[in-house]
Each structure stands twice: as C-alpha cells, then as structure tokens.
C-alpha cells in the first residue's frame, strides 16, 4: 500500500494569555496524534468542535508547526523544512478550508487566485478555464471577485484552487461546513467526481458522520485532541467500540454532560462524559491499541483482560 502522508506523535499546545500575560492557560489541540494516509484510501476525521480537527489539518500541511512529533511525506521527514523548501510538497498536498467566505483573498480576481495555484511557470488562460470548468463553474467567472459569488460558488473556486496543482492528496477541512443542505450535496458530488477522475486521495475532516460514511474508507475519531478510535467504515459503523463513537452515532443518547467535578483528574480525556467510567479512568490515560484487525481504540473498557 502506497503511503502518501503520515504524521507521528504530533502534539500541539496553544498557550492562551490574558491581557497582561499573567494568567496562562494551556489548550491542548493535539495530543500524541498519529495518522497515516494511504493512496486511494480516503481518510475521514470525525469529532466535535474543539477536538483538534482543524489544527490537525493545518499541521498535516505544516501551516502550523507541531510542538513535537513529525510529519512525513512519502517517508521523508519534512517537519523541520522551511516554507521555501516545501514547495514540492505544497503542490502535492493541498487544502480546502472550511469557510469559503474567508479563504479567498477579497482583493484578487478568481483568475489571479487560480493563477497562483498552478505550479507551472507559464500559465495560459486555458489552464485557468479548465480549473474552473472542472469544478462546474462557467469560465467567465475568472474575472469575478469573491464577493460577487455565492458561498457554494466560492467553495468551488477554493476546490479549483486546491486541485489546480494536480495534487495527490487533498485535505478537506469541513468543506461543506458553511453551506446549506443542497449546496452541500452538490459540493460532495463534485468532490466525489474529482476523486474518481483525478485519482485524488482525500483527508476529509468533518463533524458529520454521515458524510464520512458515504465518502471515506477509514475513519479516525477524535476527542479533545486525542484519537480515541480508528478503523474502517464498517468497523466504526457496525461495531463502534469507544463510548464517544457510540454517542456520535446517537447524539440523543448522551447520558452525562461534561461535569465540573471530573476536570481535575489527569486521566482519560473522555472521563467527564463517559457513562462507563471506572476507577482506572481517573488515574491513567488509555493508549490507542489495536482491538481487532486494524481497528484501534483507546479505552480501558477493552483492556480488562490484560489488567486482571
């Protein structure tokens, strides 16, 4: 299996300072996260808001440097490389941002935006028009400015920008997060078509499990910066292991909301909301372990046998 992108033991902590810089609060965006993107196998990353999904996307593209851990592109460690040395990588792995209202430069025409995305030195108008028509936009949109387009059209431009470099892998960070239901369906169809035509591999980051189930082959479930479960779609769908994954499938079944009294314990991240918490959960952080074949979970519920 051909590996494109891999990150190992990524950690990223943001320090939030107050006005005078006296009180510092640490926010763990990513904690020891390792994922692997194989060619042709679309990876879905699922989690609620604040689970570190977007940070993971930015770290994968090295737009945000991790505090520790490494990112590998085709088995080469690229974590320490400066932006100028990453150009080859930037053309092969692209990103689609969540909010199309923010991700396009308001002062550039679409043509200018796309021109920058095409790596070849001589960019002729046909290349820009192809990029536009590939995403289902009329080619005369190239003279428009972002504010002259609707959200869905903007997102198509953002997609056109991502695929213009002929990448192998596209990290899509909630590409339909800001769009209405019908536009969402159209954009997903578009992405699906592009994946087949261009042979792209997607890393699909979303909070919507149903999209992931339709779209991806492997799923990573994140909770508060940690990967709590990883497996194929069937595994996650049919036999979810982690309590959080079960909640995701059935949000109305939330038995306990996050409770204050659990916040001082340095144990499992899911402790405060877990209906099955045990004594060990208060003291130790479970490690991501393979439960079944290629189905990983980090929960003490499934370590019973060994513990006893």
């Amino acid at each position: 299996m051909e590996e494109i992108l891999r990150c190992e033991k990524i950690s990223k902590v943001f320090v939030v300072k107050d006005f005078l810089g006296i009180n510092r609060r640490k926010v763990t965006a990513l904690n020891n996260v390792s994922i692997r993107v194989n060619k042709g196998i679309d990876l879905g990353v699922v989690g609620e808001s604040g689970s570190g999904k977007t940070t993971l996307a930015k770290v994968l593209l090295l737009l945000v440097r991790p505090d520790s851990g490494s990112v590998y592109y085709r088995n080469n460690d690229i974590t320490g490389l400066g932006d100028s040395k990453l150009v080859f990588f930037r053309n092969k792995v692209r990103i689609i941002f969540q909010n199309p209202y923010k991700s396009l430069n308001p002062r550039s025409t679409i043509e200018k935006t796309l021109r920058e995305a095409i790596p070849s030195r001589r960019v002729n108008p046909e290349m820009i028009e192809t990029a536009l028509t590939q995403t289902g936009l009329p080619s005369d949109y190239k003279n428009r400015y972002p504010h002259q387009m609707s959200g869905g059209e903007r997102q198509r431009v953002a997609i056109a920008r991502a695929i213009a470099g002929n990448p192998e892998c596209v990290v899509a960070d909630e590409p339909t997060g800001n769009l209405d239901a019908t536009t969402e369906v159209n954009i997903l169809k578009l992405l699906d078509g592009l994946r087949k035509n261009l042979g792209l591999t997607f890393v699909f980051i979303t909070h919507n499990l149903k999209i992931v189930v339709d779209f991806c082959e492997r799923i990573v479930v994140m909770y508060q910066g940690n990967i709590v479960e990883e497996g194929s779609v069937e595994q996650i769908l049919k036999s979810p292991l982690h309590p959080y994954t079960k909640i995701l499938w059935n949000p109305s079944s939330i038995t306990s909301i996050r409770e204050e009294k659990y916040k001082d314990f340095d144990g499992c991240v899911f402790l405060a909301r877990c209906p099955y918490r045990k004594k060990i959960c208060f003291e130790h952080h479970p490690v991501l372990k393979e439960k079944e074949k290629k189905h990983l979970v980090s929960c003490f519920l499934y370590e019973q046998e060994k513990m006893v």
Partner: peptide, 8 residues
C-alpha cells in the same frame, strides 16, 4: 494560509 499552502 491558503496562499502559504500553495507554496508561494
């Protein structure tokens, strides 16, 4: 960020 992600 998008411009950076294009390798400009």
């Amino acid at each position: 960020l998008a411009a950076r992600s294009l390798g400009l």
